[in-house]
Simulated assay, not measured.
Amino acid sequence: MQKIQTCIRKLKSSSFWLTFLDQLQTPEIFDRFLTVMGSEGKMQMVIYGIGSIESYEPPRLQLSLAILMKRMFSWIGEVEVFDPLISLAEFRVLTALDCSVLAINEQGR
């Protein structure tokens, strides 16, 4: 949990996050999201094949981005994560971060 919290803080203070946030908040992009969502109201986010958030920084950064987006935007709903090799420790961290861990390999569908 400490590694992912550190990663979230690192990403939140990065120029990448600030630029990405500005881009997502433009009327053009926001309107496109609204069009895609239609009457749903919230967009589900699914992360397939995330990799080991315990062992590697790139998966932690990917998850951190999803978590920050969910915290920032009310139109982002549930975050679901799948990797065939998620450890018990990773499962616990993901659920503590309010992410759902998919049990069935949907083959990216």
Rank of each mutant, 00 (worst) to 15 (best):
residue 18 L to R: 14
residue 71 R to Y: 08
residue 13 S to H: 13
residue 45 M to H: 07
residue 45 M to G: 03
residue 109 R to H: 12
residue 60 R to N: 05
residue 97 L to F: 12
residue 39 S to Q: 08
residue 3 K to A: 15
residue 99 C to L: 03
residue 15 S to D: 14
residue 56 Y to M: 09
residue 97 L to M: 14
residue 27 P to F: 11
residue 91 F to Q: 09
residue 26 T to Q: 12
residue 64 S to Y: 01
residue 97 L to H: 07
residue 69 M to E: 05
residue 108 G to S: 11
residue 61 L to W: 04
residue 67 I to T: 03
residue 72 M to I: 07
residue 33 F to W: 10
residue 9 R to Y: 07
residue 63 L to N: 00
residue 75 W to E: 00
residue 74 S to R: 06
residue 71 R to A: 12
residue 2 Q to G: 08
residue 64 S to I: 02
residue 96 A to K: 12
residue 76 I to L: 13
residue 32 R to I: 09
residue 57 E to V: 11
residue 25 Q to M: 10
residue 84 P to T: 09
residue 48 Y to M: 11
residue 88 L to I: 15
residue 66 A to D: 03
residue 47 I to R: 00
residue 83 D to A: 03
residue 44 Q to W: 09
residue 16 F to D: 01
residue 39 S to R: 09
residue 16 F to R: 05
residue 105 N to D: 15
residue 109 R to D: 09
residue 90 E to C: 00
residue 54 E to M: 13
residue 6 T to I: 12
residue 82 F to V: 05
residue 90 E to D: 08
residue 95 T to N: 03
residue 30 F to R: 15
residue 3 K to W: 13
residue 43 M to Y: 01
residue 23 Q to Y: 13
residue 2 Q to R: 15
residue 11 L to Y: 04
residue 11 L to W: 01
residue 34 L to V: 11
residue 46 V to M: 06
residue 81 V to P: 02
residue 30 F to M: 13
residue 103 A to N: 08
residue 86 I to P: 01
residue 29 I to H: 08
residue 89 A to T: 12
residue 87 S to F: 10
residue 27 P to N: 14
residue 60 R to W: 07
residue 18 L to D: 11
residue 85 L to E: 15
residue 22 D to S: 15
residue 107 Q to G: 09
residue 70 K to A: 06
residue 95 T to E: 08
residue 56 Y to D: 11
residue 86 I to C: 02
residue 22 D to G: 15
residue 81 V to W: 03
residue 15 S to N: 13
residue 65 L to S: 05
residue 100 S to Q: 10
residue 14 S to V: 06
residue 16 F to A: 04
residue 33 F to V: 10
residue 108 G to D: 13
residue 58 P to W: 10
